Computed example of a mutant assay.
Amino acid sequence: MLNALVVYATITGNNEAVADLIIANLQQNNINVTKKEISLCDVQTLLNFDIVVLVPYTYDNGALPEEGLDFYDDLALIKLPDVIYGVTGSGDLFYEDDYCLAVDAFAAALAATGATQGVSNLKLNLYPDDMAKEQIQAFVKQLLVTTTNQ
C-alpha cells in the first residue's frame, strides 16, 4: 500500500479544508494518508512517504506562511528522489499578482530535492466550492497516475 503525507498551513481554515478533501480522495483510492500541520512537520519525515502533497497559503504580498519558513528552508537540505509530490493551495484572487505564490515557491523547493512532480500546481480561490472539489479530485487522480507509472 502506498503512503501519502499531506502537509498544510492555514489561517482561515481554507487550506485545511483543501487538505481534508485531498486526504478523502487519496483514501478512496486505498492510499494510507498522514496529515500534518506544517509547523509540526520535520522535512526528514518526507523520506517515509511515497507521495507528498503540500498545501501552503500565501500571506500578504506573496509571502510564505511564517510557520512554514523553517520547513521551506529545510527542504534545501534534503534529497527526495523516491517521492512523488503535488502542491496546491487556496488563495484570494483579490491579491492578483501575489495570488498563491507560495504554491509555486514550495513546488520549486520540492523539485530541487530531486522529487518528481506528479501533477501541475493547483491554485484555488478561497474556500473550496464544488468546482474546486472537482479540481482536487482531478489533481489527486493525476498524482496517482504519475505514482503508478513510476
Rank of each mutant, 00 (worst) to 15 (best):
Q117K: 14
G68L: 11
K133G: 00
D92T: 13
I22C: 01
C100I: 03
N149Q: 15
Q150E: 10
M1S: 12
A63R: 15
L69H: 13
L122W: 06
L101S: 08
Y72L: 08
L21K: 00
G13H: 10
Q117F: 12
E96I: 15
A9F: 07
P56I: 12
V7K: 00
L54C: 13
Q27S: 07
Y85S: 06
L64V: 04
S39M: 14
V140T: 08
L46C: 12
G89C: 10
D82Y: 07
T45S: 08
N25P: 01
T116G: 12
D92A: 10
Y59I: 07
G68S: 12
D42S: 14
I51P: 03
V53Q: 02
V119P: 06
F139V: 02
N32K: 14
A9I: 08
A63P: 09
I31G: 01
A112L: 08
G62K: 07
T116K: 15
L80Y: 02
I31P: 06
N15C: 11
D129G: 01
Y59V: 01
V83M: 06
D82V: 14
L5W: 01
M1A: 15
N25I: 03
L64N: 03
A4K: 00
V18F: 01
G13D: 11
N29T: 00
D50S: 05
D70R: 09
A63C: 15
K141E: 11
S90M: 12
G91H: 09
P56W: 05
D98N: 10
D74E: 08
L47S: 13
F71R: 03
N15R: 05
T113L: 04
A109I: 03
L101F: 07
T116D: 09
T12G: 08
Y95G: 06
E67K: 03
I51H: 01
G89K: 07
I23T: 11
I31N: 00
L40M: 12
N3L: 09
Q142M: 12
P65F: 07
V103I: 14
N61V: 12
N32R: 13
L64G: 02
V83P: 02
D42Y: 14
Y59H: 14
N32C: 13
A115R: 00
L26G: 02
N14P: 10
C100L: 02
D60M: 09
G86F: 06
M131H: 10
V55P: 04
F71E: 08
P56L: 10
Y85K: 06
L122D: 00
Y99H: 05
E66W: 11
Q142G: 10
D129F: 01
G68D: 11
E66A: 13
D129E: 04
T34C: 13
I84E: 03
G68I: 15
E96N: 09
D42H: 15
Y57C: 07
T88V: 13
A102G: 08
K141N: 14
L26Q: 02
D50W: 00
M131L: 14
C41Q: 07
S120P: 10
D60W: 09
D104F: 01
F106K: 00
V43C: 04
D60V: 04
I84Q: 03
D42E: 09
D97T: 11
